[in-house]
Design a protein around this nucleic acid. Structure first.
Length: 881
DNA sequence: CGCTCCCGCCATGCC
DNA sequence: GGCATGGCGGGAGCG
């Protein structure tokens, strides 16, 4: 009763201050009153009588029904706020006073009730997820604001995020059109593609790297390739197209939202920590990031995250790292977007992404963009925005057909994707740069050959011939299971690349995939190794080739083939463990591991030291030492992969006991092994993998440097590898001591096993991706190390190595994960060093590749276009810090 | 005390 | 100048 009184009285006096215990109230009345206007809540002291107030009241009065509905819905909604439902204060309150319209505020509904997330839910509750195509729902910002009882500003926050996913589109001033989720998957797909381009490399390393990087200071640059490229972008302006000016700023929330989503889509683990996201999103970069800026970004991310959470696309989780627990969000939305064929389809140069794409916008977009500057992925991405901006200008016209707009958007996005593709293609073709990840689309089906044919072949062959891939490493990919060996050819489902038995090489288009199994033809198939799982999480499909026999088919699926004995998955464990939802996830593994000495065991190689280093990071899983390794190794990467798998299986639940699984895997002696060759300059885009299976001898290159000709190899876009942890192992046969990596590698952990053979043979491993990440850390950790360049695998390097060293020890590149280099680089060879050396190798080597032509062409550009890796290297080298 | 993130000031741009 | 948008960051709520 008291309450009532107050309320009544209240209207005139600002009572709000009074703290009333809502909880009490709640109890009182269930909802009786439908009518109460929700809002008004806090209206401040200002008199109730203000014009606005009246307006609001009127509005609310006008649509009580709606309100009710909304309320109810809210109540029912589970969401995180579920608790609130228990204590639905605000709502309840309203109800309570139904009698009093004024209701002034019920006292403040706790902060939670005013949260953007809840507000967004309310907002979403008003509109159907899948509206009939026929009906077009327009949203009036003012109306919604008043109904929901919030200021418009808040509505903008929601709408901007929704707009980034195309759930709504702006029709005119103050008006938005509700599209619902019909296009959501398409949008996500586009974002995913764009994300791969943009952040593909990152993915792999993801957490670790990022962490590391920033820990060390290098951070973003290294991480984000684009930034380097494009100078301008950032928010600043993309020059977009046609038009007009775009106000850059404006869309930042939208852009941020898209980028944020992209990060999830690209992330293997599907978990993105806020700080990492913030760092990545702060494009600018390099410099220090001012703390304030960072904070601001984080605030914005919370805003976005709240909306995405309401949409059911992400959920909050915590990641436990070395440093402690960090807030993070996990993607719980759709992961795969099957339908779009476009992507898959290839990228014919000309092809538009979508046939349907409406007009010109796209075309314009592309052209303009292209013309203006080289695209950077980033740029491209941004540029899209501008378009929107443009559109917006126009928007004021109510007339404009919504549909078109939407289409435009879509088309824009698509265009972006296409543009990116093109760009990539170009690069690829030219063999320039790099490592950039190729979008999946790039490699179409085998049939398409465009892709394969052009670029690949050339590049490939030469390489082989020229020298062997210098580095061949057998790599074991932790991932999935091991398969029994299989013939080379395999392909993936979608037409991903395939191996043709006859052919020596495989091309994998997408970054996603990866499993490779090299079948060695003659070489010694002898033991075919099982292939690895795919790395690419999502891509399970992608797969690999396996040694003859077994795997051929795995095509699409991950390799889950039977072969994998239970383990399915990736043995590797990442250190992280994901917990389902709530639980915190621990990314980190015990640090100790790093120290773990076990690894050292590798016998004889001169390089042992080097190995060790790596080992730390990597787990070696050798059959022999599975056990030891297992533990740690498991930790490593699994998360990612497992996560993926799990996702596939169960999105929500992480695979049951990642660790367990991983262990199992670990146990298994074999992991697929591949040899990885780093991309040479010319080839930069691709990575070559050779099957590890082969007998060491065979592979080892024994005699010639080129032993391999016969060996089949797979080319993988660097990006793809990025995802992998890396891998190498020479023979499975004798494992070196496995060394678990203490560090967690976020992404990729892999197990390596070095076999004795390895010892004899020199192996270099490194993933490009890996490298990158490392780099940053490295420097920090170690002072620059001039030495080591080798790892790179640059062909040249390799060659030399091979020639010289064949017998020698193995040098491994780091796996991505490695984060830390805790170890002092005891070994000279350590991967760390990789970077610096690279440069030279990179640049100089062209010849080595074998693909002279391409190479040359590119050369000029190359510098500019240096692959991301290169860039990184450069950067790092250049700026140590 | 730190994580969240609400709130609203104020800049930007268009009309 | 007014209005629509939305960047931004102070500082409060909450655990």
């Amino acid at each position: 009763e008291n309450i009532f009184d107050r309320s009544r009285m209240a209207p005139k006096t600002p009572i709000k201050n009074e703290p009333i215990d809502l909880s009490k109230q709640k109890g009182c009345t269930p909802e009786r009153n439908p009518i109460t206007p929700v809002k008004i809540i806090d209206r401040p002291q200002p008199d109730p009588w203000t014009p606005t107030a009246n307006l609001k009241i009127l509005v609310s009065a006008a649509s009580p029904d709606m309100r009710d509905r909304e309320k109810k819905k809210e109540l029912f909604r589970p969401i995180e706020n579920s608790e609130q439902s228990d204590t639905p204060d605000s709502l309840q309150y309203d109800i309570v006073d139904d009698s009093t319209v004024d209701e002034f505020e019920k006292q403040r509904p706790s902060r939670k009730q005013k949260s953007l997330g809840l507000l967004c839910q309310k907002f979403l509750a008003r509109y159907p997820n899948y509206p009939l195509s026929t009906e077009k729902t327009t949203i009036s910002l003012d109306e919604v604001a008043s109904i929901l009882g919030v200021e418009r500003r808040r509505i903008y926050d929601i709408v901007n995020v929704l707009e980034s996913l195309q759930l709504v589109s702006r029709v005119a001033k103050n008006q938005y059109c509700w599209h619902g989720r019909h296009n959501l998957s398409q949008t996500l797909k586009m974002l995913q593609d764009a994300g791969e381009l943009q952040y593909g490399e990152l993915m792999t390393s993801q957490h670790k790297e990022l962490d590391l990087e920033y820990k060390f200071g290098e951070r973003k640059k290294a991480i984000i390739p684009d930034s380097q490229d494009r100078p301008l972008l950032d928010f600043s302006e993309p020059d977009c197209i046609s038009a007009s000016a775009n106000s850059r700023k404006d869309k930042s929330l939208r852009i941020m939202s898209q980028k944020f989503v992209m990060l999830f889509l690209v992330s293997k683990t599907k978990i993105v920590t806020l700080d990492i996201a913030a760092k990545i999103l702060i494009e600018e970069t390099q410099d220090t990031v001012d703390h304030s800026k960072f904070k601001t970004k984080v605030r914005r991310l919370y805003d976005i995250a709240n909306v995405l959470t309401s949409l059911g696309l992400i959920k909050k989780v915590h990641v436990t790292e070395e440093r402690g627990r960090k807030p993070a969000f996990k993607w719980i939305g759709p992961v795969e977007f099957p339908e779009n064929t476009d992507e898959l389809r290839g990228h014919s140069p000309t092809s538009d992404p979508l046939p349907e794409t409406p007009k010109g916008a796209c075309a314009q977009y592309q052209t303009s963009a292209t013309g203006k500057q080289r695209f950077t992925r980033h740029a491209s991405f941004n540029s899209a925005q501008p378009c929107e901006a443009t559109r917006r200008k126009v928007s004021s016209e109510p007339n404009s057909p919504h549909q078109e707009r939407q289409d435009e958007n879509c088309s824009k996005m698509i265009n972006l994707a296409s543009v990116c593709r093109q760009k990539i293609e170009e690069d690829t073709g030219s063999a320039k740069k790099s490592n950039i990840t190729l979008p999946v689309s790039l490699l179409p089906v085998p049939g398409d050959s465009d892709f394969c044919i052009n670029p690949l072949p050339q590049a490939v062959f030469p390489v082989v011939q020229a020298d062997v891939p210098s580095v061949s490493l057998p790599i074991g990919i932790s991932s999935q299971a091991s398969h029994p060996s299989m013939p080379a050819a395999s392909k993936t489902e979608n037409g991903k690349p395939t191996l043709v038995p006859s052919q020596p090489f495989l091309c994998f288009p997408s970054s996603s995939l990866f499993m490779l199994c090299g079948g060695l033809q003659e070489n010694n198939l002898s033991e075919p190794l099982p292939t690895a799982g795919d790395l690419g999480s999502r891509s399970a499909e992608a797969q690999a080739a396996a040694p003859p026999t077994v795997c051929q088919k795995r095509s699409s699926q991950k390799c889950s083939s039977p072969s994998a004995p239970g383990d399915d998955e990736e043995p590797a464990a990442k250190k992280q463990t994901l917990e389902h939802s709530d639980l915190p996830i621990s990314l980190v593994v015990p640090k100790k591991c790093s120290e773990s000495p076990k690894a050292e065991s590798s016998p004889g190689s001169g390089c042992s030291a080097a190995v060790h280093l790596e080992t730390n990071n990597l787990d070696l899983a050798s059959p022999a030492a599975p056990e030891t390794e297992n533990k740690e190794s498991t930790k490593l990467l699994d998360c990612q992969e497992q996560g993926k798998q799990s996702q596939k299986k169960d999105p929500d639940d992480p695979p049951p006991g990642n660790e367990h699984i991983s262990k199992e895997n670990a146990n298994q002696p074999f992991q697929p092994q591949y040899l990885y060759v780093q991309p040479t300059a010319g080839l930069s885009s691709f990575n070559f993998l050779f099957s590890a299976n082969q007998a060491p001898g065979a592979i080892s290159l024994a005699a010639n440097q080129l032993p391999s000709l016969s060996v089949p190899c797979v080319m993988v876009p660097s990006a793809a590898l990025a995802s992998f942890p890396l891998v190498c192992s020479s023979s499975f046969t004798s494992p070196l001591s496995p060394v678990p990596d203490g560090s967690f590698s976020a992404a990729a952990s892999t197990n390596f096993s070095m076999s004795s053979l390895a010892s004899t043979t020199p192996v270099f491993l490194s993933t490009t991706a890996v490298v990158t990440p490392k780099v940053s850390p490295t420097p920090s950790a170690d002072p620059q190390q001039p030495p080591h360049p080798a790892l790179h695998l640059s062909p040249v390097f390799t060659r030399s190595c091979s020639a010289v060293k064949l017998d020698s020890p193995v040098c491994m590149g780091h796996p991505v994960t490695l984060v830390k280099l805790q170890q002092p680089s005891s070994a000279p060879l350590t991967p760390k060093s990789i970077r610096p050396a690279h440069h030279e190798a990179f640049f100089k080597t062209p010849g080595s590749l074998g693909d002279p032509v391409a190479w040359k062409k590119n050369e000029g550009n190359q510098t500019r276009n240096a692959s991301s890796v290169q860039r990184r290297l450069e950067i790092s080298s250049t700026s140590p810090d």
